[in-house]
């Protein structure tokens, strides 16, 4: 599988760009897309999923132009939209059968696959109830199941961990790792820890542009040597926030312990090892 995104632009209105002149090439493995809300992650993923068309640029999947002829890609895409719904008066089996029909998946093995997905995503207990009665997390898992119905090779998960509890996140991570061996898996999140643990490669987006892309250690490298920790009085915090990127603050009796990023550290600061969250904040807050 090879996905080539070339100079893709999505313009919502005259001055409003969802994605601007973005290029990216991906091969099998997990690509984690990080970015604050409104960065354009969903916009980009929808274009990759052939749900919306770019105003400019091309996307190729294995040399097939996905924009001109989306049908080639649609056979092999599994897409979990950020903002999806279900028919509330169908149960999980019926709903998955319906989506399977839409995706053109059929045959006697389909029933087995649906059962395996329902079992695997731990929905068996509720599978005969109408989806309208599901909790957010259960609905999310139905969404994940539908994305995997057709044995997809290009898998796009937009904010997949929303609504999943910590246990379920662990399960999801295993799932993604297995999927990635023979498919491109793209997932987006605005939560760094979700991405950090799963992704082979990470992209950081902001204002419709890809600010950084690469393996995690490469991205962290740019911030190495710039993360510090210092103890200060409470009163100094506003001033510190003005001039530096503050990552977190912990209270220690009278004092505050502050972790921050800076090219010019304050006196008395201790150098810290940088991680992906530091790099993310460094890149997006610049």
């Amino acid at each position: 599988m090879k996905l080539e995104i070339q100079k893709v632009t999505k313009q919502y209105s005259k001055s409003k760009y969802g994605v601007k002149d973005l290029s990216l090439t991906l091969e099998n493995g997990v690509f984690g897309l990080l970015g604050p809300n409104g960065a354009g992650k969903s916009t980009l993923l929808k274009m990759i999923a052939t749900v919306s068309k770019p105003n400019d640029g091309v996307i190729y999947l294995n040399k097939n132009n996905m924009i001109k002829d989306p049908n080639y890609a649609r056979k092999t895409i599994g897409f979990l939209p950020q903002d999806f719904g279900v028919y509330p008066n169908l149960n999980a089996f019926e709903f998955l059968r319906y989506i399977a029909a839409m995706k053109g998946v059929a045959g006697h093995k389909l029933e087995t696959r649906i059962a395996q997905l329902i079992e695997g995503l731990n929905l068996m207990a509720v599978a005969k109830q109408h989806i309208g009665s599901y909790s957010g997390g259960m609905k999310q898992r139905v969404g994940i199941a539908q994305a995997l119905l057709n044995d997809p090779k290009l898998i796009i998960f937009d904010e997949p961990t929303v609504g999943l509890d910590p246990d379920e996140r662990v399960g999801f991570r295993h799932l993604v790792a297995e999927l990635a061996s023979e498919a491109i898996v793209i997932l987006s999140s605005h939560i760094v820890s979700d991405i950090a643990t799963i992704s082979d490669q990470v992209g950081i987006m902001k204002d419709g542009q890809l600010l950084a892309k690469g393996e995690q250690h490469e991205i962290v490298k740019s911030t190495t040597g710039k993360v510090f920790e210092i103890e200060i009085d409470k009163d100094f915090l506003p001033a510190l926030k003005e001039s530096h990127i503050v990552i977190n603050v912990t209270h220690q009796s009278e004092k505050l312990k502050v972790r921050y990023i800076s090219d010019h550290p304050l006196e008395g600061s201790k150098l810290q090892e940088a991680n992906l969250e530091d790099a993310y904040l460094h890149i997006t807050k610049k």
Binding site: V105, A106, K109, L110, R113, N122, M138, R141, D151, G171
Partner: peptide, 18 residues
């Protein structure tokens, strides 16, 4: 609801297309 781990992907059957 426990967890969703335990999902074995290689055992997933691959359906036909229609």
């Amino acid at each position: 609801t426990d967890s969703i781990s335990g999902m074995r992907l290689e055992s997933l059957s691959v359906p036909e297309t229609d």
